[in-house]
Design a protein around this nucleic acid. Sequence first.
DNA 1: AATTACCACAACCGCAAAATT
DNA 2: AAATTTTGCGGTTGTGGTAAT
Length: 280
Amino acid sequence: MRGCSLMASPCKTQSQSSSYSSSVVEDNQNGLRRGPWTVDEDSLLVHSISVHGEGRWNLLAIRSGLRRTGKSCRLRWLNYLKPDVKRGNLSPQEQLLILDLHSRWGNRWSKIAQHLPGRTDNEIKNYWRTRVQKQAKLLNIDTNSSEFKEIINCFWIPRLVHQINESSNSPSSSFSSPPPPNMPPARLASQLSDTDTLPAADGKGRHFDTEQNSTSSESVDISQVSDPFSDVPSWNHCSEMTAAGFEYPIGNSRSPLTGWVDDDDTFGGCLWNFDGLWQF
DNA sequence: AATTACCACAACCGCAAAATT
DNA sequence: AAATTTTGCGGTTGTGGTAAT
């Protein structure tokens, strides 16, 4: 795997991280610190929260003696320090759920995160940007386009389901990202309750693409959301073109060698190459 | 061995809603 | 009721690690 799965502490030992402050910026105007958190700061924040509890972040920041904004403290706690935050790679089940929920809710990261125990909106957002949008970019397709959504439905999701089935069928599977044993199973979209549906309008003025907006302007019909684990593929609505083998969008002259494989006959003889997505 | 490019992720920012005074 | 503060969200940027050259 390239890169570092985690930034501040997991890539480093405690002592290394303690000295990991070269990039910390001191705001001269009010003496506040910015940038990566040190182990000492983390300890201070955790201790302060254990004493005063969560909330009132500005006050907490002052009480703790941390020269950080309340906002920064809140973010650090919620995205990293909170005990139930789950670290590590997203399981195929989680990826599947993200794809499914995003198709319905768009960039409602926090809402999506509510259905992935231990995962933060930031993590899901990063996943989407670094994995999903990367693929879209490679294909020169807009992630909001119907083409891309069809690719998700016809290739990506089936591939994930395939991998999940494979890993469940063979305990010794070498699948690189098995679900954590103690993790509560993430609910599938098809298992969401009615209260999970979107209201007619959230009134928050959040911005998401118009197509998503139009979709989310009405309650989601759960019955129309196929179970991705079902043996009956939900991608059977895919067009003849994609079922027979996806063709590049008109005008896309990119070489098939860079992102596609056609050596797997599992899903119609032509598959998007997702391999990189599995190898975290 | 040094440099460059890319990647994943943590952290910051601006904005708006909600809560409090 | 208005003003102020706090909280939460989504978008964006910055950083360090690693692979490639």
